[in-house]
């Protein structure tokens, strides 16, 4: 079953479209990778899906047509995004970041439970819960961004360039967390990346975006072997 269906999506900045009728689907419980070079329109897709950019075309999420929904409503429906550059609030403490992440959750008990759960999963955050998040290291901020997004109990977690600015070891750690989220909690993930090599090892399905069009798609393992993809993105 597809949790997200995108058909003929067009979006852009001002009068120019960056995306030209992009179509793809995300299957419930899978990890989907969206690959492409700088400026291919990957971030634009995520921004359009979150409602930060006006767009045309069909976007269906869990059976709801998202076109009518405000950005806030989309979060309530279970769509979470970790934007590029972490998306944490620098002058909030770690705990306040988690609290604001749970803004759409009404049950106090659930918020408390989730907070404890993610503190257990990310002990570094627990140690620093009273610190301003702007003072955390890059890796810690990415964990916080992830935990913040998870606080809204998303059905689909979209992540924009999680590896950006992180050391390879930490990037790998983040992807391991994605994998366990998917495996243990059944979380659906849509990951936008330039680091195709690593991403394809974790993803189930992948789409390659070039200049606002999807040019290649298929199971991640196929793409890993695809010559064209290898040449363009894997630097083989």
């Amino acid at each position: 079953m597809n949790i997200l269906t995108v058909r003929d999506l067009c979006a852009g900045y001002g009068a120019t479209d960056v995306l030209h009728k992009v179509s793809f689907t995300v299957e419930q419980g899978s990890i989907v990778a969206l690959l492409g070079a700088n400026g291919a329109g990957k971030t634009t897709i995520l921004r359009a899906l979150s409602g930060l950019l006006p767009s045309r075309g069909l976007v269906e999420f869990g059976g709801t047509d998202l076109r009518q929904c405000s950005p806030a409503r989309r979060v309530e429906l279970g769509l979470a995004q970790i934007p590029q550059g972490r998306g944490t609030f620098g002058d909030f403490t770690v705990e306040e970041n988690l609290a604001i992440g749970a803004y759409t959750i009404n049950s106090k008990r659930q918020i408390k439970e989730d907070m404890e759960r993610w503190y257990t999963a990310f002990p570094r955050l627990a140690e620093r819960r009273r610190q301003q998040s702007g003072n955390l290291s890059g890796g810690e901020q990415q964990m916080l961004a992830l935990a913040r997004a998870l606080m809204s109990r998303p059905k689909l977690l979209m992540c924009d360039e999680p590896s950006l600015g992180l050391a390879p070891a930490i990037t790998e750690q983040i992807f391991e967390i994605f994998k366990s989220l998917n495996h243990d909690h059944g979380m659906t993930l849509l990951v936008v990346e330039q680091n195709a090599d690593l991403t394809l090892q974790f993803a189930h399905t992948a789409y390659v975006l070039e200049a606002g069009d999807i040019t290649v798609s298929g199971p991640a393992s196929d793409l890993l072997r695809n010559e064209a993809v290898q040449q363009s993105y894997l630097g083989v």
């Binding site: 900045y13 409602g51 930060l52 950019l53």
Partner: peptide, 8 residues
């Protein structure tokens, strides 16, 4: 600066 995009 160009005008705000809707929702921004």
């Amino acid at each position: 600066v160009p005008g705000p995009l809707p929702g921004q």
